[in-house]
Design a protein around this nucleic acid. Structure first.
Length: 177
DNA sequence: CGGCTTTGACCCGCGC
DNA sequence: GCGCGGGTCAAAGCCG
């Protein structure tokens, strides 16, 4: 498509954070109360918010690919509408994925209704971290990328620690005197 | 060779 | 009850 409008008077590599307006982001997309009241474990794996399966329906798997109770795995992963803390913001950038310092692994992509651009699903690669994020480009303004974070990281930012480690070492060294 | 992306299939929630 | 839309899984392929 050649109708790609370049960001107006903005360096292409410099993301600009645009706070969403009320009519652009649904209110429930930002659960500030849950967010600031330490509701991070909602998105963690150890939460008790898991769907209680009293009697999991014996789904017959046509593929028969589950040899070691894949059913139970699927049952466990289904979370009842727990509404984890979510932060959605708009970013003006030519890059779909903005580098926030964390490492993400893509686990899905889906075309959504009312949008010509697919929505991408990412998950934090840290073993103990369950944070997810969705990335979608606005159909109205293709220079705007909507990033929705779900959950809170329970580990330090790798890149941040990487850049800080020399400084920390120096501080430790100096603190011995 | 290990990690990541792609992509089709599957499952669930919700509205009608 | 049914269909639609959204979210996730997992196998296969790709790449450094």
């Amino acid at each position: 498509m050649d109708g790609e409008a370049p960001p107006p008077s903005l360096p292409p590599s410099f993301p600009t954070y645009v706070f969403p307006q009320q009519d652009q982001i649904a209110a429930e997309e930002i659960d500030w109360v849950t967010l600031f009241s330490g509701g991070s474990d909602v998105a963690q794996g150890g939460g008790s918010e898991r769907r209680p399966p009293p009697a999991p329906p014996a789904r017959d798997d046509p593929g028969g690919k589950d040899e070691n109770n894949n059913d139970s795995n699927r049952v466990v992963r289904r979370v009842r509408k727990a509404i984890p803390p979510r932060i959605a913001f708009h970013t003006r950038s030519v890059d779909d994925v903005l580098d926030d310092g964390y490492k993400w692994r893509k686990y899905g992509q889906k075309s959504v209704k009312n949008s010509s651009h697919p929505r991408s699903y990412y998950r934090c690669t840290h073993h103990t971290c369950n944070v997810k994020k969705q990335i979608q480009r606005l159909s109205k303004d293709t220079s705007i990328v909507v990033t929705t974070y779900e959950g809170i990281h329970n580990h330090p930012c790798e890149k941040l620690m990487e850049s800080l480690s020399p400084l920390l070492k120096q501080i430790q060294f100096l603190s011995r005197f």
